[in-house]
Design a binder for these strands. Structure first.
Lengths: 213, 213
DNA sequence: CATTGTGAACTCATTCACAGCG
DNA sequence: CGCTGTGAATGAGTTCACAATG
């Protein structure tokens, strides 16, 4: 019952996954779902589903399950995705460009409101979305103007720390870092790393083991 | 000493990160590094560094540290990234196209050797890399021809499971899944998910908490 | 009576602390 | 003497098992 126990980050990850399954369930016309079914769909364990949800309150009905619509609303509220968030992307290379057009972001309320680069041949270019690439030197004022809340780094690794510092100076203290390096930031700043090659390395490690064994 | 203890996946993740720092250390001219320094660079704990490395053998010299070059070689061997791996990418949208040109992959020995889509306006198109987009219906034979070992899914979520099944049928049992959905595969198949919006949801959750508290 | 909610048990991962060694 | 390697201690996260209940 919303006891302020420490909540594992893995729980938050799973809530996000449950949420997606709930969308599909609603689409398929389900009104209620059991922890058993939700766990199965999310490739998890029913006890875990109940415990995860239990951290935030008793959303279920004993003997029946969880209301598909209601639980979506609850999770949206918990994850604070019941509103839009403004993203600013730094680094308009291949990956940055892809993210700027990525439907999955806009559909889910993540709005790319500004794009920055330091290369003169990119600055001023108008992207397919209609957004004009801005000079990184204007980051500070743009953050205020566009109310950017989350910074996205899609630069080469050598520039990542510099960009992070710029975000920090401009009071953006949530960063999604796609560059394959760890940036160092003060306690107050939230970072999520998405490092493709670490993921590939893990696959290779396991593939390597398999072949050996 | 290579005791076949169970090794945490987190250890593998960290090895990948240590490896990157070792590259930088070598570049900066360092010959030796202590667990203390490597931990600091990798934003971890020195005891953890030693334990992680200890799972695979005693690579260090007491009183001195680890040889920067030698440790790189050891980690490459452990992660099985001391050779190239062939990737096949399915879904030549924004993200897929970005990955196909992503330098970080090719530099690290991950070779995109084939690209597939099901949209007739994409099939046959020649990508900047020189690769020609193939019809997904030719996946099976292409996998053999190009010796594809790792399948990359960059399709919309609705197609992800279908693509995964195609990979499985063609005996590709390592998948990097960028679609924001969980695919279900048999035990023998390795999957790594890279789900951008889950990462963003985590940031939002924490941002939401901060504002409240 | 099926299914939730949750303390207790358990499993897995991290950190400590120090013996071992170059 | 300094730093590694590692068993032991701690801490975190998951699963069990069952009482509570609509």
């Amino acid at each position: 019952m919303a006891k302020s126990e420490k909540i594992p980050e893995a729980t938050i990850t799973r809530l996000s996954i449950y949420y997606r399954q709930l969308e599909l369930l609603e689409f398929d016309g389900y009104r209620m779902v059991s922890s058993d079914k939700l766990a199965w769909l999310s490739q998890g364990n029913p006890a875990q589903v109940r415990k995860d949800l239990g951290y935030f309150g008793g959303f279920g009905v004993r003997g029946v399950g969880y209301d598909v619509i209601d639980l979506q609303a609850q999770i949206k509220q918990i994850l604070a995705i019941n509103r839009d968030w403004n993203l600013g992307i730094v680094g308009v290379g291949n990956l940055g460009s892809a993210l700027l057009q990525y439907h999955n972001f806009s559909e889910r309320g993540f709005k790319c409101v500004a794009a920055f680069d330091n290369a003169s041949d990119k600055i001023g270019k108008v992207l397919p979305s209609g957004l004009k690439v801005m000079d990184i030197r204007g980051l500070d004022s743009a953050i205020e103007e566009f109310d950017i809340e989350i910074g996205v780094i899609t630069t080469p690794p050598s520039a990542a720390q510099t960009v992070a510092n710029l975000f920090l100076k401009a009071n953006v203290n949530a960063i999604l870092n796609f560059s394959p390096t760890r940036i160092s930031v003060p306690e107050c700043c939230l970072v999520q790393n998405i490092d493709f090659s670490v993921r590939l390395d893990i696959l290779c490690y396991k593939l390597g083991r398999e072949i050996v064994n």
